[in-house]
Computed example of a mutant assay.
Amino acid sequence: MQWILHDIPIGRNIQNIRVRKNMTQLELVTKMQLMGSNMSRSTLANIETGRRNVKASDLKALKIILDVGYEEFFED
């Protein structure tokens, strides 16, 4: 039996939600830093392009700031 793994584009979903909410990367990162995250704009860019994974604590902050449910991050 062969399994084919299909990754969910979490980074692209984060980017789409951010753009839909009319936020720049810098605006989002600034709000995250106010919540205690040490994410930089370049880190966010790398997450959005799939070059870096997002930490669970940062995903929680993104959920709050972007005012979305977790399921929106995991849409395929």
Rank of each mutant, 00 (worst) to 15 (best):
I10E: 11
N16E: 09
I47Q: 03
L34C: 11
R41F: 07
R20P: 05
T43V: 09
T24L: 07
I8M: 08
A45R: 01
M39V: 12
L44H: 07
A61W: 00
V68W: 02
M39C: 14
L59R: 00
I64S: 11
G36T: 02
R51P: 09
L34D: 13
M35L: 14
E48L: 02
I8A: 12
M39K: 04
R18A: 15
T49F: 04
N13E: 08
S42T: 11
W3L: 14
N16G: 05
N38L: 08
N22H: 10
V54H: 04
R20K: 11
Q15I: 06
R12G: 15
S57F: 03
D76A: 08
T24P: 03
L34G: 14
M23C: 13
L62D: 02
R12K: 11
V54L: 05
L44Q: 07
D7G: 08
V29T: 07
S37D: 13
E71N: 07
V19Y: 14
N53G: 13
F74W: 06
R51K: 15
M35R: 02
D58H: 02
M23N: 10
R51T: 12
M39N: 10
S37V: 10
R41H: 09
L34H: 14
H6F: 12
E75C: 02
G11L: 02
Q15M: 14
L34M: 12
L26Y: 13
Y70F: 10
E27Q: 14
T49G: 13
L44I: 10
W3I: 10
L59G: 06
L34Y: 13
T24E: 14
F74A: 08
M35K: 03
F74L: 08
N38E: 15
H6Y: 14
D67E: 13
N46W: 06
L26T: 09
F73A: 05
M32H: 08
Y70E: 12
L26P: 07
S40W: 00
Y70G: 09
N13I: 00
N22E: 14
D76C: 05
I17H: 02
Q2V: 09
L62A: 04
N53F: 06
